[in-house]
Amino acid sequence: MIVVNTENVPGQTVREVKGLVQGNTIRAKHLGRDIAAGFKNLVGGELRGYTELLTEARREAIERMIGQAQQLGANAIVNVRFTTSAVTQGAAELYAYGTAVLI
């Protein structure tokens, strides 16, 4: 599966547009990470636990999007976009969407 955020796959022509595919995941962080983050907030710097959490969650959202594209019989996803929203305190939704195509 080719995944790009450009409008088409460079060097390839789109033969068929299969439609919008999407994947999302909502993640909550745990207390241990919060305590470490609280300490970091005194001296500044990267909150590594949160970075890992978000990276992993976004990968999950992409995987789900790819899964949908496979079901549609597509071999590429173009124009991929991401959004992030805070659902409740301490939980975030990571959402990935794009257009499944056949090249």
Partner: peptide, 28 residues
């Protein structure tokens, strides 16, 4: 949004990077 000279492209793939950075107490 569109890649120039698409004929010479061998492969294209999505790349991502993220960072969560906190400020310090003094700056806050």
């Amino acid at each position: 949004r569109t890649v120039a000279q698409p004929e010479s492209v061998r492969a294209a793939t999505l790349v991502t990077g993220d960072a969560v950075i906190a400020t310090d107490y003094f700056k806050g």
